[in-house]
Amino acid sequence: MLIDFVQHQCQQFAELAARIQAQPAAYIQFDSVSDFYKAEWLNDFPTGTTWAASGLDDGAAHFYAIIEYRNHYLSISCLQQVEICCGIRAE
């Protein structure tokens, strides 16, 4: 039996993104951008996942983050309310 590790990792990313989208309060509690980078759940994404965040450190009440693995993405926007989008970009 052959295992497609890329497909498995994409599925791992999608499952974690869906959990974050379903329960954002359990994942998104940051006072600063550095808190985002210290979040333990980031390590649950597959190896090779990248992330970036902006906001908060300059005293702003807004926060934005993008997490990507290959063509999969999860974007988090915290303005008046939390908005989370996840999906697959066309290659």
Rank of each mutant, 00 (worst) to 15 (best):
S54I: 10
Y27Q: 03
Q29R: 15
L2S: 03
G59T: 03
A65C: 06
C10G: 14
A17T: 04
Y73G: 03
L56E: 04
S75A: 08
Q21D: 10
S34Y: 09
A26M: 03
F13W: 12
H72N: 12
A25Q: 14
A52S: 15
L74F: 02
A61N: 13
D31G: 15
K38T: 04
A25L: 07
E68Q: 13
A18I: 01
E68K: 15
A53D: 02
V6Q: 12
A90W: 07
Q12V: 01
F36M: 08
I28Q: 09
L79Y: 15
S34R: 13
A26C: 05
F30P: 14
H8G: 07
G59E: 05
D4G: 06
G48K: 06
A14K: 02
Y37S: 07
A65I: 05
L2E: 03
T49Y: 01
E91C: 07
G87A: 02
C86H: 12
W51K: 07
A25C: 03
I84H: 05
T47C: 04
H62N: 09
A26I: 00
D44C: 06
R89F: 03
S54V: 11
L42M: 10
A26T: 07
D35V: 09
G59R: 04
P46V: 08
N71M: 01
Y69G: 09
R70I: 11
G59K: 07
S77Q: 13
F5V: 08
A65E: 02
A17W: 09
H72L: 09
I20G: 03
A61L: 11
F63C: 11
V33R: 15
R89I: 02
V6C: 05
Q12Y: 01
D58Y: 13
L79E: 15
V33N: 11
I84R: 04
A17Y: 08
S34N: 14
I28G: 08
K38N: 11
Y69Q: 13
A22L: 09
H8A: 15
D35E: 11
F13H: 12
G55E: 07
K38S: 13
F5R: 11
D57A: 04
S54L: 06
